[in-house]
């Protein structure tokens, strides 16, 4: 449309063809876009980290300057206060970190163990339950967590396990099994059957095959799945809110930050709390980015 008059290859005064023009324009747009995406993703992260070091008074004085001074960084005052136990006037985030870590690690271990078994059966063994596994995955995948939140709230209250980390863990296991199952099943399907058959010929039992041949070959996938389950359990908010609001000593990190977001607690302290929640996840992700990226597109982690 613009400058499309093509004077022929031999023409002396050759104008840009539309194709050449587009290559130039999009060459520029591409870099502008990269800049745009970097700004929208990195700036909030920087803002969060920057403010997490600053005393609230400084933020109120100058809302524009989110970069902390050297003093703020080295004194770590906000972090100290957030982590200090409540009886010493702090916010007691150590307890929340401990709770979150317990919940996330146990969920991870249980989900991965149960999913490995079921995923192996679904990938390798010929039996009627194969289809069922697919259904289980689909149902939990598509079903809204809010729909099961009410009955679970009732059930757990009646069983007396609502106000406990144990209750939270079993809900998280149920919520993460489908994703883990799906990812592991697709991975097990890529492990050559011949290797397993060779193992059987050599006298290994089925469990021996799973333990000594399939699992070691699937180790990267198992690691990726484990990290995902950890992330989901670490970040979860709805069930923690419904189950644990009344008992502060059981709060997980997300619930702690949300509950303490009141007028009494300075926002920058909670920023420090947010950084504490975010860092393990970001570090995990950068350590194993490629793996996790592949796992993500394979499983479509719900979120």
């Amino acid at each position: 449309m613009v400058a499309t008059t093509h004077k022929g290859e031999g023409g002396t005064k050759r104008k840009l063809t539309r194709h050449e023009l587009e290559i130039r324009v999009f060459g520029v747009i591409k870099w502008i876009s990269i800049g745009f995406f970097l700004v929208i993703t990195v700036f909030p992260l920087l803002y969060m980290i920057g403010l997490s070091f600053k005393p609230i008074s400084e933020l109120l004085r100058n809302p524009n300057g989110f970069l902390p001074s050297w003093n703020d960084i080295t004194s770590l005052e906000t972090y100290r206060e957030v982590l200090r136990p409540t009886d010493q006037g702090g916010q007691g985030f150590f307890t929340f970190i401990r709770n979150s870590a317990i919940v996330a690690f146990i969920t991870m271990a249980v989900t991965v163990a149960l999913s490995i078994l079921a995923a192996y059966a679904a990938a390798r063994l010929r039996f009627a339950g194969r289809k069922m596994v697919t259904w289980v995955i689909l149902i939990v995948y598509l079903f809204p967590a809010v729909v099961i939140a009410i009955p679970l709230f009732v059930l757990f209250t009646r069983l007396g396990i609502r106000n406990s980390l144990f209750g939270l863990v079993i809900v998280y296991v149920a919520q993460t099994i489908p994703v883990a199952l799906y990812m592991l099943r697709s991975y097990f399907q890529t492990v050559p059957v011949e290797l397993e058959e060779a193992g059987m010929v050599d006298g290994l039992s089925r469990t021996g095959v799973i333990w000594k041949i399939t699992l070691p070959l699937a180790a990267p996938a198992v690691a990726a799945v484990a990290m995902y389950v950890f992330m989901i359990a670490w970040n979860e908010f709805l069930f923690a809110l419904l189950f644990l609001t009344e008992s502060r000593e059981l709060w997980t990190l997300p619930l702690g930050v949300q509950q303490l977001d009141t007028t009494e607690v300075p926002k920058t302290l909670l920023m420090a709390g947010s950084v504490i929640i975010t860092m393990p996840i970001v570090i995990l992700f950068f350590l194993a980015e490629r793996f996790l990226t592949e796992g993500l597109t394979a499983g479509g982690v719900k979120g």
Partner: peptide, 16 residues
């Protein structure tokens, strides 16, 4: 096969 899928299915059955 049934033994292997049982634990995971039970969890999903009871909790979902």
């Amino acid at each position: 096969g049934w033994v292997l899928v049982l634990p995971a299915s039970l969890v999903v059955l009871v909790l979902v």
